[in-house]
């Protein structure tokens, strides 16, 4: 165990090329997915928070439930869509990084949207009278509040990023864990562990945790700075 840990550290320290390709692809896929999910999820959450329309309560319940979507189920669903016989089969996306981005976007979107919905709804209680007094209602009010609490929403985005970078099931199914093409950190860890190459698995695990830590630290620094700057 200790020996494996030591070799893992050496792999990380010596910048093993194979390892860093995997890390790069992981980051690329998860950050892209979170970017798309943020662009779609924040407005969706804000509209659900502020809007008043029939079926709103049901939509919120469904959205909250979707936060718990099992990654393998999302993977299977996207697999069926992208497979040769599927409705989007003609684009030939299955087993590509793009397919992995799509799957992770679907996985992460409900998390970001649901957390944003709650944050905007809480803030809206404070803002509503003032904004309505200005004559601001509906989507315009939603966007104003969304922008005003943008730094608090970093938490929702980080939750999404945590989910994306940690999951195995979805990227495994739609990516296929092809060496040099669609192998990412989590699928590599799963594979190397089953093959018995514990040093590489551990090295990847440490890198994964370090990256998630670093990103969250950055988010925290930004939030704190914003709090001091804007109150």
């Amino acid at each position: 165990m200790l020996e494996a840990l030591g070799s893992g550290l050496r792999l990380v320290a010596t910048l093993d090329l194979r390892l860093w390709e995997i890390v790069g692809l992981s980051l690329g896929v998860s950050l892209s997915a979170v970017a798309f999910a943020t662009l779609l999820g924040l407005p969706l959450g804000a509209v659900l928070a502020v809007g008043r329309f029939p079926g709103r309560q049901a939509a919120i319940v469904v959205l909250n439930a979707l936060m718990g979507l099992p990654p393998v189920v999302v993977g299977l669903f996207i697999y069926l869509l992208l497979s040769r016989a599927g409705p989007l089969g003609e684009f030939g996306l299955l087993f590509t990084p793009q397919a992995m981005v799509i799957a992770q976007t679907v996985l992460v979107l409900p998390i970001i949207a649901a957390l944003a919905r709650q944050a905007v709804e809480d803030a809206w209680r404070d803002y509503e009278e003032q904004l309505r007094s200005f004559g601001v209602e509906g989507w315009r009010g939603a966007l104003t509040v969304l922008w005003d609490i943008r730094f608090s929403l970093l938490t929702a985005v980080m939750a999404g990023l945590g989910r994306a970078s940690a999951e195995v099931g979805a990227v495994m199914i739609v990516g296929g864990n092809i060496d040099g093409v669609t192998r990412v950190m989590t699928t590599a860890i799963a594979l190397e562990t089953s093959k018995g190459d514990l040093p590489l698995a551990l090295g990847l695990g440490m890198v994964l945790i370090a990256i998630v830590l670093a990103l969250n630290a950055a988010a925290q620094v930004i939030k704190e700075a914003a709090l001091r700057r804007y109150g």
């Binding site: 009278e129 104003t144 804007y230």
Partner: peptide, 20 residues
């Protein structure tokens, strides 16, 4: 209890003018 937007004092007034 006034509700201030998270922007400068000036931009709070500018916002009110914009939405008007």
């Amino acid at each position: 209890r006034p509700v201030m937007l998270r922007r400068s004092a000036l931009d709070n007034v500018v916002y009110a003018l914009k939405v008007a």
